Amino acid sequence: MSGDRMMTGRMEDEAACARLCVDFANHLDARRYDSVLDLFTEDGTLDRMGTMFAGRAALAGFLASRPAAVTTRHLCTNISVYFDAADEATGFCCVLFFQGRAEAGPATALGPPSVVEYHDRFVRTASGWRIQERRIRMAIQASSF
């Protein structure tokens, strides 16, 4: 494979992994939980601030437990993807996280936003790139002044 084709392929792989970060946030906020699950490998894990959800059933349970009275928005930025092998990568993303009271019209903010970090392991599967592991860590905790 030529150097240009290898570079194009690597850029496409990087874009696919970065897209997983954004799709996760958008599907989660829209409560499209089947679409969230499809972003993970069958044995994928989510470590949310130290609470582990391993496999599709556990991930589905976590998603179903999200409070219906709360609206969220996750804004992803500073996405970085690093390749460990042709079919494996790690990723990092900063996420500005908003919560609001679900109601007709615009939600009412439940306080200032927080910042979390996504630390990811991506793998290429027969269905394309997927999240094998996501660790979510608090970077800046919101507080009232």
Rank of each mutant, 00 (worst) to 15 (best):
T108I: 13
V115F: 06
A16H: 07
M11I: 15
A68W: 04
Q141H: 05
R101Q: 14
A139P: 00
A109Y: 05
R121C: 06
R124P: 02
R130Q: 11
D34Q: 06
F62W: 13
C94Q: 12
A107D: 12
G105Y: 09
A86W: 02
A25I: 04
G91Y: 00
R19L: 15
P67K: 05
D38N: 06
W129H: 02
P106M: 11
L110R: 10
E117G: 09
A107M: 09
S65C: 04
R66L: 15
V22R: 10
L59V: 03
F62G: 06
D47I: 02
L63G: 02
R10D: 08
R48P: 00
A89T: 02
M1W: 09
H74C: 05
T41N: 08
G61I: 10
V115E: 02
F62R: 05
T41R: 06
I140N: 01
M7Q: 14
D13V: 04
A126G: 13
Q132S: 12
R31C: 02
S2H: 14
A58R: 07
T108Q: 13
F83S: 01
R137L: 07
G3D: 14
M52E: 13
C93D: 07
Q99D: 08
G91I: 01
E88Q: 13
A85R: 13
T77Q: 11
R73T: 10
S65D: 12
R73F: 03
N78K: 10
A15C: 08
P112R: 12
A107E: 08
A85V: 06
R124G: 03
M49L: 15
F92A: 12
R73D: 02
M49R: 13
A18C: 15
G61P: 09
D29R: 08
R5G: 05
L75W: 04
S65M: 07
S65G: 12
R48V: 13
D29E: 11
F145E: 07
Y118K: 04
N26E: 14
G91E: 01
V116N: 04
F97C: 06
I140R: 03
I136K: 00
V81T: 04
F62Q: 06
E88R: 15
I140S: 01
A139V: 12
R19V: 06
C17N: 02
R31K: 06
G111N: 07
A18D: 11
G9N: 15
P113W: 05
R137V: 08
Q141Y: 00
D34H: 05
A107Y: 07
F62K: 03
F97S: 09
A68R: 11
E133W: 07
A86R: 11
R101A: 14
L110G: 11
V123A: 03
M49C: 13
S143L: 06
A54W: 09
L96C: 11
A139Y: 09
F92C: 05
S2T: 14
D43I: 07
R135G: 01
R5E: 15
Q141I: 03
F92M: 06
T125H: 09
P67C: 01
E117M: 10
L37T: 01
E42D: 15
P67R: 02
A25L: 03
R124C: 09
M49H: 12
D84M: 11
D13T: 04
A109T: 05
A57K: 13
A89C: 05
Q99E: 15
M1E: 12
E14P: 04
F53H: 14
V70S: 07
L28I: 08
A89I: 00
E12A: 15
R121T: 13
A15F: 13
I131A: 00
L63P: 03
A18H: 12
